[in-house]
Amino acid sequence: MFLNNRIKVFLIALSFTTNSFASVEKQSANKPTMAIGNINSEQLLSTYTDFSQEFEAFSVSEAEMKQVAAWPNTVTIDVFFGSWCHDSVREVPRLLKAVNKQVKVNLIGLDYLKSEPLGRALQAEIKFTPTFIVYLNNKELGRIVERPTGSLVTDIDNLIKTAS
């Protein structure tokens, strides 16, 4: 009798475990694959729901719009990010909305090992995501790693002003 109860408990526990695994597989089957390598903003926002929701929810202030409008047209930003990374989900859409195609942004998706096929992340010594590398006239001004100290626009603006 005691053994039968233990077997019943074991079988019940096993059925819960099996159902849990089945739901995890179902959830992951609905998610898009990891973004690795070059991706444009339209592809990112249309493929990854978390990014598009953050993009829609974020508001750019008038002051930040004026700051971005005043940046030289030779500013470019390389963004090394993970489509799986919560910091990237928060910060990358904010940058895209703030610069509103006024600044050239190169989006480079990384895998869990912070790498991508062309080796740019290794060459740039990327250790954390997202990493925003800001250039003026093809010269690196500085980096914002994981999260800005203020806002992305303010931090980038400070890098540009320091270089001028």
Rank of each mutant, 00 (worst) to 15 (best):
N40P: 09
D78I: 01
Q67F: 03
A163V: 09
D111I: 08
V103I: 07
K8C: 12
V99W: 00
T49R: 04
L96D: 02
S88G: 02
K66E: 13
V153K: 00
V145L: 11
V153G: 00
D50W: 02
K114L: 15
H86N: 15
F10R: 11
T74H: 07
L152D: 02
N138W: 07
R147G: 13
I144M: 03
P148L: 04
K66T: 09
S28D: 13
Y135T: 09
I108F: 06
A13L: 14
P32M: 04
S83N: 10
N106V: 07
L95W: 01
P130R: 00
V89Y: 09
L141E: 04
H86D: 12
I7Y: 13
I156R: 01
N30R: 08
C85G: 03
P148E: 04
T18D: 05
G142E: 01
T131H: 01
T33P: 13
D111H: 06
N73R: 06
S52H: 07
T129Q: 07
K161N: 06
A124E: 06
K104F: 05
N30E: 09
E116Q: 06
A69P: 13
R6K: 14
Q67S: 12
E64C: 11
K66G: 06
A63R: 10
S41C: 05
Q43S: 11
K139F: 14
L14C: 12
L107I: 09
Y135Q: 10
E125K: 13
E125F: 10
P32E: 00
D87Y: 11
S23F: 08
P93N: 04
Q123C: 15
T47V: 03
S88Q: 01
N40G: 08
N4F: 15
A35L: 05
S115W: 07
V75T: 02
F10H: 07
I160P: 02
S88A: 13
K8I: 10
M1A: 08
S83D: 03
T131V: 07
I156A: 01
L107H: 04
I77P: 03
A163Y: 06
T149D: 09
